[in-house]
Design a protein around this nucleic acid. Structure first.
Lengths: 348, 348
DNA sequence: CAGGCAATTGTTAACGATGCCATTTGCGCG
DNA sequence: CGCGCAAATGGCATCGTTAACAATTGCCTG
């Protein structure tokens, strides 16, 4: 099956043409499924392609068509469940549309390394860029250092309205979580937040506060975390000292996990003494002690939609080059749902 | 800062040449840091590059140099901690070496989708391929469908010795885990395994059995899992029924987490009644109930080394085209360490 | 001061594919 | 039977860059 090659070098279009007894142009037509090729010719060409194990050189094609076959993704925290899932969604959707995906993971959030990562992507190798879960400043840096005219989509974080954005409906997710707790009779709900410079963390803080206010409840002070179980643990130790804490909403499941551990250590029972809700529905959530009630956003869907949006931008650009970039591009929200498990119970 | 462009199109090398008053070739020399360019000329060119915000077109460069500037990665389970960390390591190392990374995530393990993912990568767009944590059959499919001569490195799973492989030293990691338990006085150690078709899972099973045999202990039957917390939970319920289970080694932390939950549910205390050891040292491991003793492999290091190995192959290929692919390429092992926490204690 | 050599720069022809236009072929119809 | 038109195919230029080679410059040496 290896394919016959001339002199070890991979076959090129003219090899195929020679073997099939046609011109390179005709082979090209077959490759691109263009009309006006006799059926018999087509099959002869296809046979030659098979025999030589020929694969079109995408760099050559991209060069003449002046268009890349790849989507660039700038991703932070790609080891975490949320971003990793989104990346997966992006990868699948892109592949389905015939695009490759190249990923740049800046070393850190500082402007320099982001701009650098960006520059790598933009050397005419990508047709567009998606930034995933950046911080406010990171997103700004990244998107502003884009060469003009390169289509871009932001996941969860755009510096302003200049770039189409796909986001989880944080407000809705947080609302159902907090209201679930209030309905169980808890007088108020504490919040362990993600890092403040991250836009999704910020959005969750605001939604939590807004929901409490709407219900006429006092909003306690935010307990700051950084997404990690460690920070959730520290927050838990802090909350354990406080009086009257009966319900806590953590901005992600990892921190909720740390909370559970801290409460356990201090002899505080969950959910009898304190109810805990997380966010993300990591695959382990149902197997914590106790199983964690949490908000489930469809991260993969976010990835799919961001690709969809980006491709629309790219196509639109081809069609009418003069048109403004965000014209007619919807800003999709992905709505999360509440998953009820054993970590929440009526107020004591 | 935007850079002056002619007619909205990005600048090309001849634009730079014109502005700097030199030939494109000289610009090329500056770009590639070749010698024999007068200092004054160089700075004039650099200034023109800056003014035009010029970025070399990597597709054109790749075409003429007959070489891609990208590494392809075939990755499974990229949402899991281990593979995601390895991916991160690959991404960073590749970028440091001036390569981009494109990722293909096959929909499933079946031959078709793997070959398809492979084909996408290999259209002359990648300089080499790394497969990450594939199953035996998956790795075989993938690597055999590679066009001949394309350098490849396997992480953790190679069908045979035809491809250089970077792997975690499973045997060593498992040995320290199991011996730790035996030294605590446990008569034997049970094992909850990963999916059998995965080579790392298989390696851990074998190492576990070998360590027990070396110590003259009976090896109980393997309790099969699939990496997930769910499967660990099921395994835990099963083990809870059994008599005389005092120590369990889970093939990863997620399953260990499920075990902890199952034991907790059945009133079995960890570590008083049963000791549990995991594998991976996920960031949450220290915050489970109880904190999990586990084996810590440096997944990022695996990624780094696989890039290193691949680049050596790529360079070697350029130098002496005729040479056999794996000649002189070491097969690196990354050695894990044991992290002792509260989930292990002397036998009851 | 001619000859020679190194340093610097320019010219031409690729790389592999497709766009555009020209050419050939086949066939229906007046 | 020849004209005309559509279908099928081929030729040539081109995308942006670099390799290979050629040409120029400047300076040192015998």
């Amino acid at each position: 099956m290896a394919g016959v090659r001339r002199g070890g070098r991979p076959a090129v279009i003219s090899d195929v043409a020679r073997l099939a007894g046609v011109s390179p142009q005709t082979v090209s037509r077959v490759l691109n499924e263009r009309p006006n090729v006799r059926e018999e010719t087509r099959s002869r060409v296809l046979e030659a392609i098979r025999q030589l194990d020929y694969r079109p050189n995408l760099m050559a094609r991209g060069l003449v068509r002046r268009q890349a076959h790849t989507i660039g993704v700038i991703s932070f925290d790609s080891v975490l469940f949320g971003p990793a899932s989104t990346l997966l969604g992006i990868g699948r959707a892109a592949r389905a549309a015939g695009y490759g995906v190249t990923i740049a993971t800046p070393e850190s959030f500082d402007r320099g390394s982001i701009v650098e990562a960006m520059a790598d992507l933009t050397s005419h190798t990508v047709a567009g860029v998606i930034t995933v879960f950046a911080s406010q400043t990171a997103a700004t840096s990244a998107l502003h250092s884009l060469p003009g005219g390169l289509p871009a989509v932001a996941v969860e974080a755009a510096p302003d309205d200049s770039v189409p954005t796909v986001r989880i409906d944080q407000a809705e997710g947080v609302r159902v979580a907090v209201e679930h707790l209030l309905r169980l009779g808890h007088p108020t709900v504490w919040h362990v937040s993600g890092p403040r410079e991250r836009m999704d963390a910020q959005a969750r803080i605001e939604a939590w506060r807004a929901t409490l206010e709407r219900a006429g409840r006092p909003a306690p002070q935010v307990v700051p975390g950084d997404w990690s179980a460690e920070s959730g643990y520290q927050a838990g130790l802090e909350l354990a000292e406080r009086q009257g804490v009966t319900a806590v909403f953590a901005a992600n499941d990892h921190m909720a996990l740390g909370l559970l551990r801290a409460f356990n250590e201090r002899g505080i029972r969950v959910p009898e003494d304190v109810s805990v809700v997380g966010f993300d529905d990591i695959p382990e959530a149902g197997y914590l002690i106790p199983p964690l009630t949490t908000v489930r956003p469809d991260h993969e869907e976010v990835g799919r939609r961001s690709v969809e949006t980006l491709l629309r931008l790219i196509d639109g650009q081809d069609d009418d080059a003069g048109e403004s970039q965000d014209a007619g591009v919807a800003v999709p929200f992905v709505v999360p749902t509440l998953v009820r498990r054993a970590s929440t119970a009526p107020a004591p």
